[in-house]
Computed example of a mutant assay.
Amino acid sequence: MKLVEAIIKPFKLDEVKDALLEIGIQGMTVTEVKGFGRQKGHKETYRGQEYTIEFVPKVKVEVAVQDSQVQRVLDTITRTAKTGSIGDGKIFVRDLETAVRIRTGETGDTAL
């Protein structure tokens, strides 16, 4: 099993969610996060004053999947979250040792 974590632009969330549902992903966790990468934030002007916004708002989507689904999930997120501009985000894949469905006690792939 793997845990796929995608950091994406907030306005792309619905599109990514719908695309993942279409390929059979049944659950995900979404968290509002802030951070910066190569872009190092951006500048905004408010009432004539220029401010540097160091931490850019993003959304983190976490999906636990079977090993056989990883590449399809990566392709789907990459295709739907891409705008072609700086700050589109990153995807990380981690090994997931175990998963437990609390209600039934199922473990491993069957808990997903």
Score class of each variant (00 low, 15 high):
E44W: 00
G105W: 04
F36A: 08
E106D: 15
K34N: 04
G89S: 08
M28R: 13
V4N: 02
V63L: 08
M28I: 04
E54N: 14
Q66P: 00
E50D: 05
T45S: 11
K60N: 11
E15R: 14
S85W: 10
D95M: 00
V56M: 05
Q71G: 00
I86A: 10
F11W: 10
A19F: 06
G27T: 02
S68K: 09
R47S: 12
K82W: 03
I7A: 06
T98I: 03
R72W: 00
M1A: 07
K60M: 15
E32C: 01
L3V: 10
E97T: 13
G41Y: 09
E97Y: 07
K82T: 14
K90Q: 02
G35F: 09
K17F: 12
L20D: 05
V61W: 10
K40N: 13
Q26E: 14
Y51F: 15
T80R: 13
D67L: 08
F92V: 00
S85V: 12
T76S: 02
G35V: 10
R79V: 10
G48P: 06
T107Q: 12
I91D: 03
T104F: 08
K9A: 10
V59F: 10
Q26G: 15
D109Q: 06
S68W: 11
R94L: 11
L21I: 12
G35P: 05
